[in-house]
Amino acid sequence: MKRLTEEEINQKLKDFEGWTYAKKALHTSFQFENFKEAFTVMTRIAFEAEAQQHHPNWGNVYNELEISLSTHDADGVTEKDFKLAQAIENIVEATN
């Protein structure tokens, strides 16, 4: 998988509100009403990540979920990261 240039990444990020690029990865965070809602979304994302065979770096504290995406084999961001980012956005939107 080809690593995207910073220019390509910034162009694609225009379609992803709340996502940023830093340290060779895409980053975002979400806040939910409570821990149960955050964990429910994490579970849905986990199933999607497994289906795509591409897994996020993430952390959860109570109602907040922080996510970073990068393709380790490419040492940066690839199309795989944007595909998973879109799936994550769709999952979060479906829960609102």
Rank of each mutant, 00 (worst) to 15 (best):
K14C: 03
A46G: 15
V41N: 13
S29W: 04
E33C: 00
E48Y: 02
N10V: 01
E93G: 00
K12V: 05
T40G: 14
F82P: 07
E89V: 10
E7L: 06
T95M: 07
F47Y: 15
I9W: 06
G18V: 01
A51S: 14
K24Y: 10
S70D: 15
A94L: 02
L84M: 04
L13N: 02
E33T: 08
T43G: 13
V41P: 11
F32P: 05
M1C: 01
K23I: 00
Y21M: 05
S70E: 14
I45S: 09
N63Y: 05
M42V: 15
E64C: 06
V77T: 07
Q11W: 01
I91G: 05
H54W: 09
E37I: 07
E66A: 13
M1E: 06
F32I: 10
R44T: 04
T71L: 09
E33L: 08
I91H: 05
E66T: 15
Q52I: 06
F82S: 09
A22W: 00
N96S: 06
N57E: 15
F32M: 09
K2S: 09
K83R: 07
H54S: 12
V61Y: 12
V61I: 15
D81I: 02
Y62D: 10
K23T: 00
A49W: 12
I45L: 08
V77E: 09
P56Q: 13
A94W: 02
N34D: 15
F35L: 09
R3D: 03
W19L: 07
L65S: 12
K12E: 10
L65V: 15
K80Q: 07
L84S: 05
Q31I: 08
Q52G: 05
I88F: 07
I67N: 14
L69E: 11
T95Y: 10
Q86E: 08
T78K: 11
I9P: 04
A46P: 11
L65Y: 13
E79L: 05
L13G: 02
T95N: 06
N96C: 01
Q53G: 11
F35E: 04
T5H: 04
S70W: 12
N90H: 07
S29P: 00
E7C: 01
Q31F: 04
E89M: 07
P56H: 14
E17H: 04
S68A: 15
I45Q: 10
L4I: 06
G18R: 01
E50G: 09
I45T: 11
E33K: 13
F30M: 08
M42E: 12
E50P: 04
D15V: 00
Y21N: 06
A74G: 08
S68N: 13
T95R: 02
N90W: 01
N57A: 10
K14I: 11
G18P: 01
F39Q: 08
D75K: 11
W58N: 10
D75T: 05
E6G: 01
I9H: 05
V61C: 08
F47A: 14
I45P: 07
F47E: 12
K14Y: 02
A51Q: 15
L4C: 03
F16M: 03
I88P: 06
A25W: 00
L65N: 13
A87C: 04
